[in-house]
Simulated scan of single mutants.
Amino acid sequence: MTKRTYYAPEGGLPPQTQLLTDRAMFTDAYAVIPKGTMSDIVTSFLPFWEGARFWILSRPLSGFAETFSQYVAEVQPGGGSDRPETEKGVEAVLFVVDGRVSITIGGATHEMEAGGYAYIPPGAEWRLRNRSDGVARFHWIRKAYRSVEGLDAPDAVVTNENDVAPTPMPDTDGAWATTRFVDPADLRHDMHVTIVTFQPGGVIPFAETHVMEHGLYVLEGKAVYRLNQDWVEVEAGDYMWLRAFCPQACYAGGPGPFRYLLYKDVNRHMPFPALRAPKG
């Protein structure tokens, strides 16, 4: 099996001699947050977490992410939380990129290492600890679950990328594949978090323009990515946000695979603004 790698930020600060020029971009249609911006001074601390800090990559904000938030968490040995989520009705996905953590969901404890994936249902009681001797890092994607009458909430899922076979996209001869951790036909889920892999030279051969909002964190490799009207160079450690209907395409530049962790909202009607009461 091909060895998979997962980029994880380590913090620090650039030297005073470094040029300010960078690839960071923030537009109405997309944002690019390069790995070089993920320094010590942009981390956050959160309630009821010990020995942990977080790079917050996206948050619900006017002109930015609307449906989700995404963090990279760094947890020191012995650190973690017995009350990690403070909001009601929130579902989550964790994806481990470095080290090992123990996660307990609804009384069942699982050991997770690099490549580990966990889906945490809305309202589930869970806790996380780093019981190893090394630092652990993982992505934490949070979303307010949109319930539908007649559909139960999804069950918890804990697995590892190495135990899930990627699904090749049609007519690509394996140059473009998606690793899916939950059944895409399971309409209980209102978000999917997958891993997309392009082999060197693989492409998205058209400008995808669709209703799903995206968060993309590059785990491995490099590529040129089309974002709205711009072609942008990205590499392992970079993060991209794409609003709904932002055109996108990709060319994987090699020499190795180009892989990213992908969030998208799915399987729900488009909500309407609340109707105003008639005057008079």
Rank of each mutant, 00 (worst) to 15 (best):
Y7K: 00
R137H: 09
A92E: 07
K264T: 10
P278R: 09
T5M: 11
G12H: 12
L242I: 01
H214D: 03
W49R: 03
P121E: 08
V196A: 14
M212P: 10
E66V: 08
P205C: 10
G11Y: 08
A165H: 13
V157T: 09
G221P: 05
T27Y: 06
A29F: 12
V97K: 00
I41G: 07
M169Q: 12
R226L: 00
E208N: 15
G116L: 01
A52G: 08
A24E: 15
N160H: 15
Q18N: 00
P14S: 07
Q70C: 11
E113C: 04
H192K: 08
V72S: 04
Q76L: 11
G221F: 05
P60D: 12
G78S: 08
D265G: 08
V193Y: 03
D82C: 07
I56G: 14
R146L: 14
G79W: 02
W55G: 03
A223C: 10
F48A: 08
A24V: 14
T5A: 15
A274Q: 15
D163L: 09
A156T: 12
L227R: 02
Q248L: 06
R129H: 12
A73V: 04
N228S: 07
S58K: 01
D173R: 13
V224E: 06
D22Y: 11
G99A: 04
F138Y: 12
V32S: 00
G150A: 05
Y71K: 07
V72R: 00
A207W: 08
G215Y: 01
G256A: 10
H139Y: 15
G36V: 09
Y30G: 04
A153I: 12
A165C: 12
P34W: 04
A244W: 04
A65W: 02
E10M: 15
I56N: 15
T209M: 10
L261G: 04
Y145R: 03
E125C: 11
I33K: 05
G123Y: 15
N228M: 05
T178I: 14
M240V: 11
A165Q: 15
R188M: 07
C246W: 01
P15I: 11
P84E: 02
A31K: 01
P34D: 11
S69H: 05
G253P: 05
A65M: 03
D163T: 04
P14G: 05
M270P: 07
W126Q: 01
K35A: 12
L94V: 12
N160I: 02
R268Q: 12
G237V: 00
R276F: 14
V224H: 06
E111Q: 13
G253I: 12
G237C: 05
Y7I: 00
R146C: 11
M38Y: 11
P60L: 07
D163A: 08
T172P: 14
T194W: 04
N162D: 14
I103C: 05
G221E: 05
R226S: 01
P255A: 09
F206L: 15
G237Q: 03
P34E: 11
A114H: 02
A118D: 05
A29I: 03
A124C: 13
T43A: 02
D28L: 10
Q76P: 06
A124I: 07
A165F: 13
R127I: 13
V193G: 03
R53N: 13
